[in-house]
Amino acid sequence: MNIIVCVKQVQDPEIPPSKFKIDPETKQVIPPAGVPPVISVYDERALEAACRLKDKYKAKIVAITIGTDKASEVIRHAISMGADDGYLLCDPAFESKDSFKTAYILSKAIEKIGAFDLVLCGRQAADWGAGQVGSILGEMLTVPVVSFACDIDVVDTGLRVKRVVSDGYEILEVPMPCLITVSSEVGLPRLPSGMRIMLARKKPIPVWKATDINIEHSLLEKGHEHTEIIGLVVPERKSECEIIKGTPKEAAYEIAERLVSML
């Protein structure tokens, strides 16, 4: 089975609010010093899902990411977890917050990698959280898409996928090739074994530019984006606390009344 996992490097979602800064002009997040970027948590789970399939069946895992040269770190992380190969898609022209554009770049890279049975993505990125790239990519690759998977297994007809829904889960069967987005319910990602860490350190990571994956530059230009960021603000965090006086009984009535009035 050939599995391709799309991963993304993001600013650490655990950046303490006091250190989270943005630049409203350029509509960018200013990375705080001393807090290194990390692999998006959902993508790490997608990798975990891929590795579990590899543990069980014969599989080859290839990881791809779009980002700056620093993003090769997430490819190394993917390899240390169990991926066999990885590519960094790095080109100034790739810079975008648009899900369609991202999906397009990924689809071109996947085309270059060749035949695949399964593409895995995180359910959404841990930074912007749009949750669109997976489905759009599936569309572009013209394969069926299953979202929010928490368990994947191989059956005769293809894959059996357990997907999380708001009131429980569904089990679907899907033929291969297909694309599945993975939810955190998959479980904790593994800690890379020592052997894999060293392997990942030594492995060269090829960098692909737009021309390497036959991308029409014109399609990457600003006008082709489907999303536009109008503004970026850090929400104001406010909390107020009022202590309702009186005997417990009185206080309880008072609280109940206020809650009712809020409805």
Partner: peptide, 25 residues
């Protein structure tokens, strides 16, 4: 140990998440 090592690998220190980053520096 697994959590500690994961933190170390991802965030460069053995102590967990936001709580620890809050004071860093």
């Amino acid at each position: 140990i697994q959590n500690m090592l994961r933190n170390m690998q991802m965030r460069g220190n053995p102590w967990a998440g936001a709580q620890s980053l809050r004071l860093k520096g």
